[in-house]
């Protein structure tokens, strides 16, 4: 079902984890649909992303797209990172099954969400960046379930 590259990034995810005191964090997705991605970035004073980490709740493709997305933005400038599209994510993984292409869109959104947070925190405007959707999960629903 998945390419070797997807399996590799799923089983050995790159840059998985958290950054303490990150420059910015973005979380996208919806637990209802089964995918949530969170991306942490450390961006230096020159606008270069010198560290990036992720956490993902989701299927194999969701984990793999997050992992490859962190590789695609690491070391880039904010402007360059903004140009990483979902297509670039799919290509870098040697393709995704059609039903899983939405995972690559989520990865693109995660980058945008982190950059939005960065722009807000620093009071700057990044050309071409739109406010990402945020709709993570419904606490009330989960608390209803007994364990």
């Amino acid at each position: 079902m998945y390419t070797k590259k997807v399996m590799d990034h799923f089983l050995n995810p790159r840059n998985m984890g958290e950054i303490e005191n990150p420059s910015c964090v973005g979380t996208v997705g919806n637990a209802k649909c089964g995918d949530i991605m969170r991306m942490y970035m450390d961006i230096d004073e020159n606008g270069i992303i010198h560290d990036v980490k992720f956490k993902t709740f989701g299927c194999g493709a969701a984990v793999a797209t997050s992992s490859i997305a962190t590789e695609l933005v690491k070391g880039k400038t904010v402007e360059e990172a903004l140009k990483v599209t979902n297509k670039a994510v799919v290509d870098a993984l040697d393709g995704l099954p059609p039903l899983k292409v939405h995972c690559s869109l989520l990865a693109e959104e995660a980058i945008h969400a982190a950059l939005w947070d960065y722009a807000e925190k620093n009071g700057i405007k990044i050309e071409g960046l739109k406010k990402p959707k945020s709709d993570i999960h419904d606490e009330e629903e989960i608390n209803k379930v007994s364990y």
Binding site: A61, L99, K100, V145
Partner: peptide, 20 residues
């Protein structure tokens, strides 16, 4: 992701489980 749709199993939803 294993059902080929966006929704999880109708059985698990029917017993009252939230989606996630």
């Amino acid at each position: 992701c294993t059902s080929g749709s966006l929704d999880p199993s109708h059985v698990l939803l029917a017993i009252g489980l939230p989606h996630e």
